[in-house]
Amino acid sequence: MTKIIRKEALNDSIIRITISDQDIACHAKPGQFAILRVNSNGERIPLTIHNVNGNDVSFIYQIVGRSTYELSKLEVGDDIEDVCGPLGKPTEIDGVKKAIVIGGGAGSAIAYPIAKALKDKGADVTSILGFRNKDLIILEKEFSDVSKLYITTDDGSYGVHGLVTNVLKDLIEKDDYDSVYAIGPLIMMKYVALTTKDKNVKTIVSMNPIMVDGTGMCGGCRVSVDGKIRFACVDGPDFDGHKVDFDETIKRNNFYKAFEREDYDNVKHNCNLFKEVK
């Protein structure tokens, strides 16, 4: 059992929670994740570690299904059944002098510790964050503090009208960068990798396949990298974006969509019924 010590909504569907866990706090590095189970019947969900401060460990998540919905119902002082981490390999940042960090939607939460770590190591960091519209923007101040920040919105309601790849293309045309880090929806990471491929800028993507144990045991999170099977939980989650088969992971991530949709609808429905009874 792990208590939630802080909770704040960053927008309508994205929430930041903080727990206190000495083991995770002592050992976590940027790019690593943890596995959470919300309750005793809960599924194991991987969430990337957003920030560590003393023994405080925070996660930012978007409500996308039953488990994140149930997590969102827990308040400060409530217990999360299980938290296990840090897992996966840390993001490689050593020796990088000039980098672009790209976050898409809730992926910005995961991109933040990488931008911060690069900045702390003295790198010149430019960030590009993409959102559907102005209301969904998160972490603008945090990113501004550690990097030169561009924000794009799909509808043009804030910042640059368009996609992160529009800004990225301009930046790499004009200047040389050691590395590009991209975290967000698979389709975004795919197009980031395609954009940087021509100029052969090293591009690291953080893969988010379906996962069960997170310790290499089940192989459900396998991704094809350079034609070989790799497990995102132990070999990743970061991989060379120019070698990842994004289309395969996109299809694999759809495997349980129908079940998950129905399960989520049932839980929301029951929750509303419960409210009516009260």
């Binding site: 083991d23 995770i24 050992h27 299980d82 296990c84 981490g85 840090p86």
Partner: peptide, 10 residues
């Protein structure tokens, strides 16, 4: 439980 030796503790 939830302690991965080599990750959570070395």
């Amino acid at each position: 439980t939830n302690k991965v030796v080599g990750k959570t503790i070395f």
